[in-house]
Write a protein that binds this DNA or RNA. Structure first.
Length: 443
DNA sequence: TCTGGGGTCCTAGGACCC
DNA sequence: TCTGGGGTCCTAGGACCC
């Protein structure tokens, strides 16, 4: 199951004025388009198109395009609702991403497959307001292809089944190579120069040829396109790396401001580590200038700190990361982005202790527990370390005041306090997660 | 002026072991 | 010092996903 134009669809559920219009949802920092309505796609707005180009090419020429800042609080909650309904209808659900899930239909009679597939489409769409497509086949790669057909051709009414060998052959011959799950931009470029344009052209080359050029990943895609289910999803409990990074709203040169930003990134990583009951042995801090600014000197660097013992406290991670920041920082550059990645992640309870290190566990643990609890109850960053700065809001989303349904206004957006804070000038409300933002309908 | 963020897996090559 | 055969571990870079 795949939600159609997911982020845009979420915005439309609560803002009917977006219906029937070209709509794009922008990335963090209002950078570029990450989700587009059908109307926006028809205009030729590409995935990843920068917001300023959309303004130049369309808005300035009087073409109506609605732009929304991304509102992940809303999308995350809408995703949860969709997946809950899917589980209720179908059971055996494997959530693959914020807008996609695989369902194991087992060995079901074809007519039951068709009715269950159609039921998923109608129940999820009705229950969330978000249109979805369902594709069914003997492998995940073919099921994803079926989903594309279900989305593209209205006749399917949201559900497409690739069952027989004849249907499989027809499907792969109609499937452009760039739409195959597992074949990316680079491979498409390489293969199209050889005249390989569809999934059928690709499998025609045979497993040996493919393995030589794409390794075992390509081989798996071949098997899947032949109808054999060989791709296993990752069911690990713990993430192997956790990153928090942001582009800045404006270029930053001052190390004081970078310290504030990096402290926030580090404490965010610590919070994510604690959320999955794990700790990390290493933290990497990176710093970079804007590669688009050819008029400015460029710099990229990173530094790693190793903790004496795997660490999950905000205080410990922030200390380590500030140390690393001092190593990578060079004065005289205008920085555009920074971030923190933690790695060497181990589950709590399996931490290798260090004979020569006597940390004050109890102290930091108490502080973290308290901060987590207060922030859970009263909102993120209610309580934070002083070094995170007065606002501690690198991912603050300032909400608009609740009001009647009348489309977007930007009057409720607070000014950014710090240069490095993100831009989000077209932010919708947290309609489903904040009582103050619940819509009022006048009738 | 303005171009996102967060992941996974595989492979080749270097360094080292017996 | 060199020979062959059989390993492990680590890292950087590439490719892919949403």
């Amino acid at each position: 199951m795949d939600c159609n134009n997911f982020f845009v669809s979420c915005e439309r559920v609560f803002d009917p004025s977006l219906e029937g219009r070209p709509v794009v949802v922008l990335s963090n920092n209002d950078g570029c388009a990450v989700s587009r309505s059908q109307e926006a796609k028809a205009l030729g707005i590409k995935m990843g198109m920068p917001a300023f180009k959309i303004e130049e090419e369309f808005l300035r020429n009087g073409v109506d395009v609605a732009m929304c800042s991304s509102n992940y609080t809303l999308y995350g909650d809408m995703s949860r609702r969709a997946m809950d309904i899917l589980r209720d209808v179908a059971g055996n659900v494997d959530v693959y991403s914020i807008d996609e899930a695989f369902v194991d239909f087992g060995s079901m009679a074809p007519e039951d497959v068709v009715s269950l597939g159609s039921e998923i489409v109608s129940r999820v769409t009705k229950g969330t307001g978000i249109p979805v497509s369902v594709g069914c086949a003997h492998s995940k790669t073919l099921a994803k292809a079926a989903t594309r057909f279900a989305k593209k051709f209205k006749g399917y009414r949201g559900f497409c089944l690739i069952d027989s060998e004849e249907q499989r052959r027809k499907a792969i011959s109609l499937l452009p190579l760039e739409d195959v799950w597992g074949i990316g931009y680079r491979s498409v470029k390489k293969f199209s120069a050889m005249g390989i344009l569809t999934a059928a052209d690709f499998v025609e080359k045979g497993p040996y040829w493919i393995k030589q050029r794409m390794g075992v990943c390509g081989l798996r895609t071949y098997e899947e396109l032949m109808g054999r289910d060989v791709i296993r999803l990752d069911h690990r409990q713990l993430k192997q790396t956790i990153t928090t990074s942001r582009s800045f709203g404006e270029l930053v040169s001052d190390i004081g401001q970078l310290k504030t930003a990096v402290s926030n990134f580090a404490s965010s990583c610590a919070r994510k580590l604690r959320a999955q009951n794990s700790s990390a042995l290493y933290a990497t801090v990176f710093l970079m200038t804007s590669f688009f600014r050819e008029d400015l000197p460029q710099y990229y660097n990173r530094a790693v700190v190793e903790f004496p013992e795997a660490e999950d406290s905000s205080i410990g991670l922030v200390e380590g990361c500030l140390e690393a920041l001092e190593k990578v920082y060079r004065p005289g550059y205008a920085y555009k982005k920074a971030g923190v990645t933690v790695s060497g992640i181990v589950p709590d309870g399996h931490i290798q202790q260090n004979l020569y290190y006597q940390p004050d566990y109890e102290r930091n643990r108490k502080i973290d527990l308290l901060m987590d609890e207060v922030n859970r109850r009263y909102g993120r960053s209610t309580l934070h370390l002083a070094v995170q700065g007065e606002s501690a809001v690198f991912n603050r989303r300032v909400r608009k005041p609740a009001g009647v349904l009348q489309g977007k206004t930007s009057s409720g957006i607070a000014e950014r306090k710090e240069k490095w804070e993100m831009r989000c000038e077209h932010l919708s409300r947290n309609y489903t997660t904040d009582l103050n933002d619940v819509i009022t309908v006048c009738c």
